[in-house]
Computed example of a mutant assay.
Amino acid sequence: MTVPANNSPLLDAGQIAFMRGGVSISIGSCGADGLPQLVRGIGCRVADDGSQVTIFVPEAKSQQVQRDIFANGAIAAVFTRPSTHRTLQIKSRNARVTALSAADLALVHAYRDAFVEELGTIGFREDMVRTLLAAPDSELVGLSFKPTEAYTQTPGPNAGKPLESGE
């Protein structure tokens, strides 16, 4: 789904709640050479109306993604609930790198706890999940963007189709 001409929200309340939950977050970018880059997100902030998304990433592990964003602003973010494989993909061409606030750090800590709980339901140990998400608060940056496209990517016949309300 691309941004509607009437400026109605691209994401509904249920989709926003899903993105804010204990889901796996992957961010992709691509440089002028066509080489894709990927970094794991460790939490996010989504505006209540879905108009702005900021994904928190370790600065050192996201260097190439940041360079791609500085060069072209393009970003793709995938949100997946591991226990069900429900997946949403959000895209934009206006991403930028931002600093985190104290409120953002609270979201990172809550996200880690929620992701530990989510992966615990499918047998992953807490220490493994916390190691996967480990990064000092002082080394986090935000990748902020206005969503312009949204797709369902849940495996099955609707994967790749524009996101519809209620998915």
Rank of each mutant, 00 (worst) to 15 (best):
M1P: 10
V3H: 11
V3W: 09
A5P: 14
N7C: 01
L10H: 03
L10C: 03
A13Q: 11
G14D: 14
I16N: 02
F18Q: 02
S24I: 02
S24H: 07
I25E: 12
I25S: 04
S26T: 11
G28L: 08
C30M: 12
G31Q: 13
Q37M: 03
V46T: 03
V46S: 01
S51L: 07
S51W: 04
S51G: 15
I55D: 04
P58K: 04
Q64G: 00
V65K: 02
D68G: 03
I69A: 09
G73N: 06
A74F: 05
I75H: 06
I75P: 08
A76E: 01
T87E: 08
T87P: 11
T87C: 13
I90M: 06
R93F: 02
D104F: 08
V108N: 08
R112T: 11
D113A: 15
A114L: 13
A114P: 06
A114Y: 02
I122D: 08
R125G: 03
T131Y: 09
S138I: 00
V141Q: 08
G142W: 12
L143S: 06
F145Q: 09
T148F: 00
A150Q: 10
Y151T: 01
T152F: 03
T152R: 11
Q153H: 13
N158E: 10
A159T: 07
G160W: 07
K161T: 13
E164S: 12
E167D: 15
